[in-house]
């Protein structure tokens, strides 16, 4: 059984069917790139996986644990969704950092709230038995993550004083601070000036390891080709083509994939 299994996801807004029976699976440590034109449903799929949208049908299973089942109302309760969400991290197109907190505070806010709650409930949070102990390890982890995204010297700055690329790197560190099983990126470079996309993409590339499983919705075809283990091309709410980067990007079979990719190649070579 695969690490992440997404089965038969169907999502409509009113009468518009945005996702029509989407299924895919992902092994631990794999990077999946989802490409496709605007309106093909890529972002909606990512939002469904993060429970920001509730699909009408389908299952989401991580590591054998059923996190979402369209037929099981108990999986749609707020408290259940909140708990299951922590299996996933999300990096948004618009960063969505909290403007009133410093970079460092952005990283530790959610983990600290969670630690307080968990210690109250179970007397334990990731090996720490007191809140103070938990905070120490949360802080240390935040420092480590800031170093990883190359922003240690910005730890006490407010987001408004950072460039878009730096803000997005903070957002990545913030998502990692909760140690999600699967990290999702929703067009992480689409809101950036072209000269800033490189720094963000190389941070994402640097995260690739046998432990980190990632889903990246992107328009950066060359990034998908270089970094992804698998590529999905979506069109009109269905998976039109799926495979390795070499299969989908270098040798697309479907005429729609070919047409989509040829529009990119027109300008890029």
């Amino acid at each position: 059984m695969a690490f992440l299994e997404v089965k038969n996801i169907q999502k409509s807004f009113g009468r518009t069917e945005v996702l029509k029976d989407i299924s895919f699976s992902l092994e631990k440590g794999e990077v999946l790139a989802i490409i496709g034109s605007s309106g093909s449903g890529k972002t909606t799929l990512l939002r469904c996986i993060n429970f920001l949208e509730t699909p009408q049908m389908g299952n989401i299973i991580v590591n054998g644990e059923v996190l979402f089942d369209g037929d099981d109302p108990s999986k749609k309760k707020d408290s259940e969704i909140r708990k299951n969400r922590l299996h996933f991290g999300m990096v948004f197109q618009q960063f969505n950092l909290f403007p009133q907190y410093t970079v460092f505070e952005n990283l530790v806010l959610a983990p600290k709230l969670l630690a307080k709650e968990k210690i109250k409930e179970n007397g334990e949070y990731r090996g720490a038995t007191t809140y103070k102990e938990a905070v120490e390890s949360i802080n240390a982890e935040a420092e480590r993550l800031l170093d990883k995204v190359g922003l240690s010297e910005k730890r006490d700055e407010y987001p408004c004083n950072l460039s878009g690329g730096q803000q997005q790197r903070v957002a990545i560190a913030r998502a990692l601070a909760l140690d999600p099983d699967v990290l999702c990126f929703d067009e992480p470079t689409s809101a950036l000036d072209p000269e800033l996309t490189g720094e963000v993409l190389s941070v994402i590339k640097g995260l690739k390891s046998s432990e980190s499983t990632m889903i990246v919705v992107t328009h950066e075809i060359s990034f998908a080709r270089d970094v992804a283990d698998r590529v999905i091309f979506m069109a009109d709410g269905v998976i039109e083509e799926e495979g390795t980067p070499s299969q989908v990007i270098e040798h697309p079979q479907s005429p729609r994939t070919q047409a989509f990719l040829s529009r990119f190649n027109q300008y890029s070579d």
Binding site: L52, R82, M90, N96, L97, A110, L114, A175
Partner: peptide, 10 residues
């Protein structure tokens, strides 16, 4: 996005 960022952070 501020709410959504909060939600995905649990």
């Amino acid at each position: 996005g501020q709410y959504e960022a909060g939600y995905v952070l649990g």
